[in-house]
Simulated scan of single mutants.
Amino acid sequence: MSKIYEGSSRTGDFSEALRLAIDQAKTDRPEADPLITWHLAAVRGQHGGFAGLNQITVIIEVKQL
């Protein structure tokens, strides 16, 4: 069984978005120091336009034990 988590960065920082997704997965686990096994499910973003967007969202799939 697996579960989906996502993290977003408004500065277009892939590392920040990935860290936020992994942090969400960690808070969903009861262990003090959980091991998160994940794979990248999707990346999406927006860049430019009148609003000057630079957003990225990272979606990970986490294997549930």
Results as ranks from 00 to 15, higher is better:
31 E>P: 04
18 L>T: 03
28 D>N: 12
29 R>A: 13
59 I>Y: 01
2 S>H: 14
22 I>M: 02
48 G>D: 12
50 F>H: 11
44 R>T: 07
28 D>A: 14
62 V>I: 08
10 R>W: 08
57 T>E: 05
56 I>F: 05
27 T>E: 10
1 M>T: 12
54 N>S: 11
35 L>H: 05
62 V>E: 06
36 I>D: 02
14 F>N: 11
2 S>F: 15
60 I>S: 00
24 Q>W: 01
65 L>I: 02
40 L>T: 04
37 T>K: 13
21 A>W: 02
8 S>A: 12
24 Q>G: 15
62 V>H: 01
26 K>E: 15
63 K>Y: 07
65 L>P: 13
40 L>S: 09
41 A>R: 15
52 G>S: 08
38 W>E: 12
14 F>T: 05
59 I>H: 00
14 F>H: 15
50 F>S: 12
18 L>Q: 01
53 L>F: 08
12 G>T: 10
1 M>D: 10
40 L>A: 09
16 E>I: 10
43 V>I: 15
3 K>I: 06
38 W>Y: 15
30 P>R: 04
19 R>K: 15
18 L>D: 05
61 E>V: 01
6 E>I: 01
19 R>M: 07
59 I>F: 03
55 Q>N: 15
16 E>D: 14
21 A>V: 06
64 Q>I: 14
18 L>P: 04
31 E>H: 11
52 G>A: 06
18 L>V: 01
38 W>P: 01
20 L>H: 09
20 L>W: 05
36 I>W: 01
32 A>Y: 05
61 E>R: 14
40 L>M: 14
54 N>P: 02
64 Q>F: 00
52 G>E: 08
28 D>S: 12
48 G>I: 09
12 G>V: 10
18 L>C: 07
6 E>F: 15
53 L>M: 04
10 R>F: 11
5 Y>P: 09
61 E>N: 14
15 S>A: 15
25 A>M: 06
30 P>T: 13
22 I>K: 11
64 Q>C: 10
53 L>V: 01
10 R>C: 00
45 G>S: 03
38 W>H: 12
21 A>H: 02
31 E>S: 14
59 I>P: 00
33 D>G: 04
42 A>Y: 03
58 V>D: 02
29 R>N: 11
3 K>Y: 12
61 E>I: 00
10 R>G: 05
